[in-house]
Amino acid sequence: MTSDAERKLTEAGWPLEDLDFGREDEPDICGCILINEVDDGLQARLIIRPGLDRDLRASFAEWAVQRIGRFAEHGPEPDGWQRRTDGAWQLWARGVDLPAID
Score class of each variant (00 low, 15 high):
D39N: 10
D39A: 15
D39C: 07
D39F: 13
D39L: 15
D40C: 08
D40W: 11
G41E: 07
L42Y: 04
L42D: 02
L42G: 11
L42M: 05
L42V: 12
A44C: 13
A44Q: 05
A44E: 04
R45G: 14
L46S: 10
L46W: 09
I47N: 01
I47T: 13
I47R: 00
I47P: 04
R49L: 03
R49V: 05
P50T: 10
P50C: 07
P50A: 02
G51E: 09
G51F: 12
L52N: 05
D53T: 01
D53G: 11
R54D: 15
R54I: 13
R54V: 10
R54A: 15
R54W: 09
L56E: 14
L56R: 10
R57S: 07
R57V: 02
A58V: 02
A58S: 11
A61P: 03
A61K: 06
A61G: 04
A61C: 10
E62G: 07
W63H: 13
W63R: 09
W63Q: 04
W63T: 13
A64K: 09
A64W: 05
V65Q: 09
V65L: 09
Q66L: 14
Q66S: 15
Q66M: 11
R67Y: 13
R67S: 13
I68K: 08
I68D: 04
G69M: 08
R70Y: 10
R70F: 07
R70V: 15
R70M: 12
F71Y: 11
F71S: 06
F71H: 02
F71D: 03
F71M: 10
F71Q: 04
E73G: 07
E73I: 01
H74M: 10
H74K: 11
H74G: 10
G75Q: 00
G75H: 03
G75A: 08
P76G: 03
P76V: 03
P76F: 03
P76A: 08
P76M: 02
E77G: 05
E77W: 11
E77I: 11
P78T: 05
P78G: 04
P78R: 01
D79M: 07
D79Y: 02
D79R: 10
G80R: 04
W81F: 06
W81G: 01
Q82C: 10
Q82I: 06
Q82R: 14
Q82P: 00
R83F: 03
R83P: 06
R84P: 01
R84A: 08
R84E: 14
T85M: 10
D86Q: 02
D86R: 08
D86C: 03
G87Y: 03
G87T: 12
G87E: 06
A88E: 11
A88I: 02
A88R: 06
